[in-house]
């Protein structure tokens, strides 16, 4: 009788021990990557949304590969779109001494002269659209399709979200800025400049 009691007691203890020894502190997971993997398996979405931060911003939805997201509308941001409002005559007739000056502030600093000039991206016969390398029309709203002809790596990162900036918050729906929201297409590099402020002076505490 005594033996049996002892046996049951030991069995219970072992069970308890096994139960508890599997959990060490926070560590149901062996690292944060394990936690992410496990906890996102039954991800149901959150109630947090960044929709309200998008109010008043005109966006269009695009689907590229497996990614679908919003980008800001472009045409309404271009001063005096449509281009044909001015470009009513062929370019040759608009250039000359008596014609009004326009686009005087645009200087092309993008690749070198052998690679690019105005008509690499603009079609003189169809000013209201951009043109691909093979002469197809590209809508101004989807101008990223023009850039991605050469900048394929950046395009891939941008689609995934590693390149560029979000328009509203982190929460869904995803709205991302497009190439021309950060880069001037005629002069796409970032200028060097002075920093916005002094950098931290770390306090030397331990000396």
């Amino acid at each position: 009788m005594m033996n049996r009691k002892n046996y049951i007691y030991i069995l219970c203890c072992t069970c308890l021990f096994v139960l508890f020894s599997c959990r060490h502190g926070e560590g149901e997971y062996h690292g944060v990557t394990d936690r992410i993997e496990a906890e996102s398996k039954n991800y149901h979405g959150t109630s947090i949304s960044s929709e309200k931060y998008l109010e008043g911003i005109k966006t269009i939805e695009i689907t590229e590969g497996e990614h679908t997201f919003l980008i800001p509308e472009r045409k309404n941001q271009i001063t005096s779109y449509a281009c044909t409002e001015c470009h009513s005559k062929p370019l040759t007739q608009m250039q000359g001494k008596d014609a009004k000056n326009a686009h005087w502030d645009i200087k092309l600093v993008h690749a070198n002269k052998n690679t690019m000039n105005c008509i690499t991206c603009h079609n003189p016969d169809n000013m209201d659209n951009l043109t691909s390398l093979t002469g197809n029309n590209i809508d101004f709203n989807n101008s990223y399709n023009l850039c991605n002809q050469c900048h394929t790596k950046q395009f891939k990162d941008w689609k995934g979200g590693a390149h560029g900036k979000r328009l509203a918050g982190w929460a869904p729906p995803r709205a991302s800025m497009t190439c021309v929201n950060c880069h001037n297409p005629h002069k796409p590099h970032f200028e060097s400049k002075w920093p916005e402020r002094f950098n931290t002076e770390t306090v030397k505490e331990r000396e």
Binding site: S40, Y43, G45, G161, G164, K165, W170, S176, F190
Partner: peptide
């Protein structure tokens, strides 16, 4: 639902923030 101030302020897009549990989030990508 907003991004931290540093993420929003960065002019180069070097900073990415998001929900690690959302398989479709950009941070996961």
């Amino acid at each position: 639902g907003k991004n931290p101030a540093c993420v929003e302020a960065c002019p180069t897009g070097a900073r990415i923030f998001g929900n690690l549990l959302d398989p479709n989030s950009t941070i996961r990508w």
